[in-house]
Simulated scan of single mutants.
Amino acid sequence: MRTSAPRFVDAILDWRWTATLARLALVSAYLLGGIVKLAEWPAAVAEQAHFGLHPAAVWAALTIAVELVGPILILSGRLAWLGAGMLGVFTLLAAITANAFWGMPAGQARFMATNAFFEHLGLIGGFALLALLDRARRA
């Protein structure tokens, strides 16, 4: 019985850039979102107002801060647990706010919101795993 991964999997996992690229993949949507919102401030404020968050400008600024600071912490490896926690909590709040499928009538919109909600839960799991790995690395 084989107890280790195939050699090609070990080679990928041992490659010096794998961890960095995995972290970048995990935070890429947040990093891009923060940059786009910063560049298109009126649209960022309008997005917050659309979701009923007031004052919208304050929520837009907080969103941008989390979407930029969280990834920077994770990519730098400094306080990665904090960046993972920031993005995990943000993602949960965003999923509840933007994808409240439980209050929607059956149909395409509910189907899409349900999928998006559970995709966000998957991201939260990724952030929890990252925080666990960061703790193990520091121990």
Results as ranks from 00 to 15, higher is better:
Phe101Glu: 09
Gly77Ala: 09
Pro105Ala: 13
Trp59Tyr: 14
Ile64Cys: 07
Phe8Cys: 11
Val9Lys: 09
Ala43Pro: 02
Phe127Tyr: 10
Gly85Tyr: 03
Phe118Tyr: 15
Gly125Asn: 09
His120Glu: 02
Ile72Pro: 00
Val36Cys: 03
Thr3Val: 13
Arg137Asn: 14
Phe101Asn: 07
Val66Arg: 00
Ala84Pro: 00
Trp81Val: 02
Ile74Ala: 01
Leu82Met: 07
Ser28Asp: 08
Asn115Gln: 13
Leu129Glu: 07
Met1Phe: 12
Gly85His: 05
Leu24Met: 13
Gln48Arg: 09
Pro6Ala: 05
Ile74Pro: 00
Glu47Thr: 06
Gly34Ala: 06
Ala46Leu: 09
Ala57Leu: 08
Trp59Arg: 05
Gln48Asn: 11
Phe127Ile: 01
Trp41His: 09
Pro71Ala: 12
Ile35Leu: 09
Leu133Ile: 02
Leu129Gly: 00
Leu132Asn: 02
Arg135Pro: 03
Gly83Met: 02
Thr18Met: 14
Val9Glu: 09
Leu24His: 03
Gly126Asp: 02
Trp102Phe: 15
Pro42Tyr: 12
Ala46His: 13
Leu38Cys: 01
Asn115Met: 07
Pro105His: 14
Pro71Gln: 11
Ile64Thr: 11
Ile72Thr: 08
Val89Asp: 00
Ala43His: 12
Gly126Lys: 00
Val69Ser: 04
Ala22Cys: 12
Met104Trp: 11
Pro55Cys: 11
Ala113Val: 09
Ala25Gln: 14
His120Asp: 06
Glu67Gly: 01
Ala5Pro: 03
Arg78Ile: 10
Ala44His: 01
Glu40Ile: 06
Leu123Pro: 00
Arg137Leu: 08
His120Gly: 04
Phe101Ala: 10
Arg78Cys: 05
Glu40Tyr: 05
Met104His: 13
Gly122Lys: 01
Val27Ser: 05
Leu75Met: 11
Ala95Asp: 02
Ala109Tyr: 15
Ala80Gln: 01
Phe117Trp: 11
Ala113Gly: 09
Leu21Met: 10
Ala29Trp: 03
Arg7Asp: 00
Val45Ile: 11
His120Pro: 06
Arg23Trp: 04
Ala61Lys: 05
Trp15Tyr: 15
Gly125Ser: 07
Leu87Ile: 01
Ala131His: 00
Gly70His: 04
Pro71Glu: 07
Met1Arg: 12
Pro42Phe: 04
Leu53Ser: 09
Ile72Leu: 10
Ser76Tyr: 11
Thr97His: 09
Ala136Asp: 04
Leu68His: 08
Leu62Glu: 10
Leu129Ala: 14
Leu62Ile: 11
Glu119Val: 04
Ala11Ser: 06
Leu132Ile: 03
Leu24Lys: 06
Ala44Gly: 11
Asn99Gly: 08
Met86Lys: 04
Glu67Arg: 05
Pro71Gly: 12
Leu21Cys: 10
Leu68Pro: 01
Leu92Gly: 05
Ile96Asn: 13
Ile124Glu: 02
Leu32Gln: 13
Asp134Asn: 08
Ser28Trp: 15
Trp17Lys: 08
Leu121His: 06
Thr114Ser: 13
Ile124Phe: 02
